[in-house]
């Protein structure tokens, strides 16, 4: 129990340090970028006089030293004032929460589908190592992993939306339909293509990992012994293999939040899906500093949460870690 408390505290400290680091880096990257917040606010064709511009800049504190500007931004964030998005003319907090709710559905579906599919396919191909199924899925996954996300997105778009016309070409809801008439099925239907694209991409990681881990386990002594005790292939998989692979596989899947997030940003752009990914691109293109910083902090929290869950799960489910015989790092030294 004492050990657990210690873990929770050290993880919380790590989280705080990470957030501070991400905020500092993001903030200084933005103020050193060629974006002029004033110009992006009033627009490049504004007829505002130089005196008026100086006055606004003075009022905003743009001439203050960077450290002071950073501190005032942090102070506002802590008080709950995330600023207004220039792109959407709305508070950053509202934009992020709305966009995240779209993206969250997308990522949750992808995460579950790619996880289950990757795990099952990984087990089948690992059990038939070198067979035709293994070869096809292995090369497919390696191919997908080396291909750019947007390219796969375009490919999926061309095949399923343009040629086969099975799915809509983009957006999250049908065009021209009043918001109150949009059904759950409409949303699901529009989510299908981005989810398929992202699942194909995320699946390859978990599949290759599961396959590798299975081959490692199937050659271990305890499987040999299970065979010697008369267990058949099916019993070996159900009794030993799944139990021993599930935990590391789930961990890998949680730790893949960052890749999932990055892939989502690209896929959303291809499918014009109004999630956090398209908002990020729009914010970057329009020099929307408050939104950009807000998204940076939120995505850091999101990715960290994934890693944290991976760590915690390992401790909860592996009896050897629970009893403190081996540490998390120990098990991960050979799984990565």
């Amino acid at each position: 129990m004492n050990k657990k408390m210690k873990n929770v505290i050290s993880e919380s400290i790590r989280m705080a340090l990470l957030l501070i680091a991400v905020s500092i880096i993001a903030f200084f990257l933005v103020i050193n970028s060629p974006i002029d917040p004033l110009t992006s606010y009033v627009g490049p064709e504004s007829t505002l006089s130089q005196e008026a511009r100086d006055e606004i800049a003075e009022y905003w504190g743009l001439y203050d030293p960077p450290a002071e500007r950073f501190m005032s931004w942090v102070g506002n964030i802590v008080r709950g004032d995330w600023g207004d998005s220039i792109t959407y003319k709305r508070p950053v907090k509202d934009v992020i929460s709305e966009r995240f709710s779209y993206s969250f559905g997308l990522m949750a579906c992808t995460w579950v589908i790619s996880g289950l599919l990757g795990f099952v396919v990984g087990i089948i191909s690992g059990m038939r190592e070198g067979g035709w199924f293994d070869r096809i899925t292995k090369y497919f996954c390696l191919m997908v992993k080396s291909a750019p996300t947007f390219w796969i997105g375009l490919l999926v778009l061309v095949i399923f939306a343009v040629e086969l016309k099975w799915f809509p070409i983009g957006m999250a809801v049908p065009l021209g339909k009043p918001a109150n008439e949009v059904t759950f099925w409409d949303r699901l239907y529009h989510m299908a293509l981005p989810v398929i694209t992202l699942s194909i991409i995320s699946m390859s990681d978990i599949m290759l990992y599961t396959r590798q881990k299975l081959i490692e386990i199937i050659n271990s002594d305890f499987i040999l012994y299970a065979r010697a005790r008369g267990e058949n292939e099916k019993q070996i998989v159900l009794r030993h293999v799944i139990r021993n692979i599930a935990l590391p596989a789930i961990t890998v899947q949680f730790a893949s939040f960052s890749e999932l997030f990055g892939g989502m940003a690209l896929a959303e752009n291809v499918f014009s899906y109004p999630g956090i990914g398209t908002a990020t691109t729009a914010a970057a293109v329009n020099g929307d500093v408050p939104l950009l910083l807000g998204i940076a902090v939120c995505s850091a929290v999101f990715v960290f949460a994934g890693n944290l869950m991976a760590n915690v799960l390992y401790g909860v489910f592996d009896p050897r870690i629970k009893e403190g015989v081996i540490t998390y790092e120990h098990t991960h030294a050979h799984s990565h």
């Binding site: 305890f222 010697a228 009794r239 139990r243 021993n244």
Partner: peptide
């Protein structure tokens, strides 16, 4: 078998 390594660790 030779050792406890031949048992499923989980």
């Amino acid at each position: 078998p030779q050792s406890v390594d031949y048992l499923d660790p989980l």
